[in-house]
Amino acid sequence: MTVFVCSACGSAITGPLTELPEVPARPGDQGYPKADGSRRATATMPLGFFSLEPEPWGAPLVPCAEPRPVFAGGPCLGDPDDVDGFLVSAGTRNTVVLHPDDARGLREDTDHLRHSSGCCGLHGQAGMNRQCPCGALVGTLVNDCNTAYELHLEPSQVCTITD
């Protein structure tokens, strides 16, 4: 079992989690209304588990000639500076993917939220939007209608305690 802690203050960010060998397939239900009225996708990770995302994930975004998701679990995104181009992530590899409810003590970073909101939630394209109670930015929540529903912890911002 692994507990993730804030690198800045040492506070636990999660309870004990079990590592999965790979990120499960992202559910294909993004954008569809649910019984509760939300348009959020089903969570990628089951509660109590985490995995590492091997592909670049999150900000910064860089130009790309071919249409493909901006990052795993994200939408295809056109480049506003190039009519025929697209954007893809040049972010960190091996971000820690977990169910958002496994890190309940994190707070919204209101400075980053205004730049990372989509129509129904957070799209994650503007960088980290979750902070430890000490104020250190530690991760990015995505929960917009056209993204996966997951939390990514930035590897440089967290440490692990393994039992």
Rank of each mutant, 00 (worst) to 15 (best):
C132M: 04
G124F: 06
T160H: 03
D101N: 12
P80G: 02
V88S: 01
S51A: 15
P133S: 06
G85P: 01
N94Q: 06
H123K: 08
D144T: 12
T44R: 09
D84E: 07
S156F: 01
L113Q: 12
P63F: 05
P133A: 03
H152N: 06
A103F: 10
L106P: 07
C159W: 02
L87S: 03
S89H: 08
D84K: 09
S11F: 06
S38G: 10
L20R: 15
P27H: 08
P63T: 06
P60C: 08
G124K: 08
H115P: 00
E55M: 09
D82C: 14
P54G: 02
A136F: 03
P60V: 07
L113V: 14
C134P: 07
H115I: 01
D82A: 15
L98T: 08
I161F: 10
A43N: 13
L77S: 00
L77K: 02
G121M: 05
M45F: 14
F49R: 15
G15P: 00
L98G: 00
G58Q: 02
Q131N: 00
N129T: 07
H99P: 03
R130D: 01
S156H: 11
Q157P: 00
G78Y: 04
S7A: 15
A103Q: 05
A103T: 04
C64V: 00
H115N: 14
V97Q: 13
N94I: 01
G10S: 10
L47T: 14
L113T: 12
C145K: 02
A43H: 15
G74T: 04
G73M: 04
F4D: 07
T92S: 11
T140Y: 00
M1H: 13
L77F: 00
P155H: 11
D109M: 06
G28N: 13
G48L: 10
T2A: 14
C119P: 12
V142A: 08
N146Y: 12
V142H: 02
T14R: 01
G118E: 05
C120P: 06
V83A: 15
D163K: 09
S51H: 05
V158Y: 04
G118T: 11
A43R: 14
V83P: 03
G37S: 07
